[in-house]
Amino acid sequence: MMTTTKQVETDRDEQLPRQLAIRNWVILCALLILSLLWHSKAVTLGVLAGGLTAIVGFYWLHHALVKTLKNPTSFAARGFKHSYFVRLGALAATLVVLIVVLKVNPLGLAVGLSTVILNILCVAIERSMFTRRP
């Protein structure tokens, strides 16, 4: 019984990245629909741009970590460091372009950037509520 419960938990953990990836898009769609209530193109664009930025950043981090941990050599570690700095630079450049050049709504952008955080909070709440303690 104990082994079965552990097996179920391990399966759930293995499915977590895929589950997070799908739910990211669901949450972004929900936020976009909510943003339509404001009848403002800037707000909707801000949410969309922020959400896409957060999701792409999350994918990039996941990809880099998986690549490094599958092949833990010093070359891979250097590659991860390089990829990390490139990702941060790309993220900062995207945000500067969105805020300074395209002038998207800052609140919408912040809400869009919270897509991944909301997703993680949902997972944490779900797990704390539905996981049985022995």
Binding site: A54, H62, A92
Partner: peptide, 18 residues
């Protein structure tokens, strides 16, 4: 778990940057 934690921690810096 680390990936999720890193994403969560990193979001703080992103918010500050915004």
């Amino acid at each position: 778990t680390m990936m999720i934690g890193l994403a969560m921690i990193e979001s703080l810096a992103i918010y500050v940057f915004v």
